[in-house]
């Protein structure tokens, strides 16, 4: 077995090492589901390239089939073939077992971070003008009510943050509030974690229901302060003149 098979295997293994061990050196580790996805893509690429023509197909698959069919094999290769044929079902069995065996780990989850808001909250606009005073007031309120978790730097790293999983949202990340409208933030602040729909897994969020504590005016101003402090702009659907 040589040629395309070996190089294909090297590419796959290299990709796996890159995703699993090298990438975490610079950023957070990838979840297993994503690694599987990328490896599947690489594998399909190798197969497509290998089966492009009759000769490349033979070069890639020929040795595999000759090996598996066992024609004219003797000695070591015959033993190796037998070993593969015995190992393969065992491997499948082990895979099935490890999938089914009860463990103390919670199952993988698929939490939607930004689920759809209820109709009442769609399309609301901030009724307070964006004046320096309002923004300053919002920042002050933010410092008092929000920063213990979401951090004084709007980065989700407040003193209380390490106690939560999932962690508090990082507003300076362009993937969070910059993708959302002010009305959306208004909903999330007002109704808190328990106000999430089922796909948002309301049981996981520790966000308080601020409507119990703060008047709407404060919430709107906090939103203003939040965007200003995190250097983001809310998403809009109409161009501003």
């Amino acid at each position: 077995m040589k040629g395309p098979i070996i190089s294909g295997a090297i590419i796959l293994a290299g990709m796996f090492i890159f995703l699993k061990f090298l990438l975490p050196l610079v950023t957070a580790p990838l979840p297993a589901s994503l690694i599987y996805l990328y490896l599947a893509l690489v594998l399909s690429g190798i197969l497509i390239y290998g089966t492009m023509s009759a000769s490349s197909l033979e070069a890639m698959m020929g040795p595999v089939f000759r090996f598996l069919s066992g024609k004219g094999q003797t000695g070591a290769s015959q033993m190796a073939r037998l070993a593969v044929l015995v190992m393969f079902p065992l491997l499948v069995g082990w895979q099935t077992y490890s999938r089914l065996v009860p463990s103390d780990l919670p199952p993988a989850e698929n939490r939607t971070i930004h689920p759809a808001p209820p109709g009442e909250f769609v399309g609301l606009a901030n009724p307070y003008p964006k004046t320096p005073e309002n923004i300053m007031m919002g920042k002050g309120l933010y410092a008092a009510y929000c920063s213990p978790c979401h951090g004084a730097n709007y980065d989700g790293k407040g003193p209380a943050a390490p106690g939560f999983n999932p962690p508090p949202a990082n507003f300076s990340d362009p993937g969070t509030i910059a993708q959302l409208q002010e009305a959306y933030l208004f909903w999330r602040i007002k109704k808190g974690g328990v106000g999430l729909p089922v796909e948002g897994m309301p049981w996981k969020s520790a966000m308080p229901r601020w409507e119990e504590e703060l008047p709407e005016e404060f919430i709107w101003k906090i939103i203003m302060g939040e965007y200003d402090g995190a250097h983001q702009t809310p998403r809009t659907w109409e161009e501003e003149e």
Binding site: V122, G123, A125, T236
Partner: peptide, 28 residues
């Protein structure tokens, strides 16, 4: 409130508070 946002269809056009997508007058 529930009728406003469902059977009454008010929210298909009207908003409560200024809105970017509403087709009809703001009812705040």
């Amino acid at each position: 409130q529930k009728i406003f946002f469902s059977k009454g269809q008010c929210a298909l056009c009207h908003s409560i508070g200024p809105s970017e997508s509403a087709r009809c007058p703001d009812l705040s």
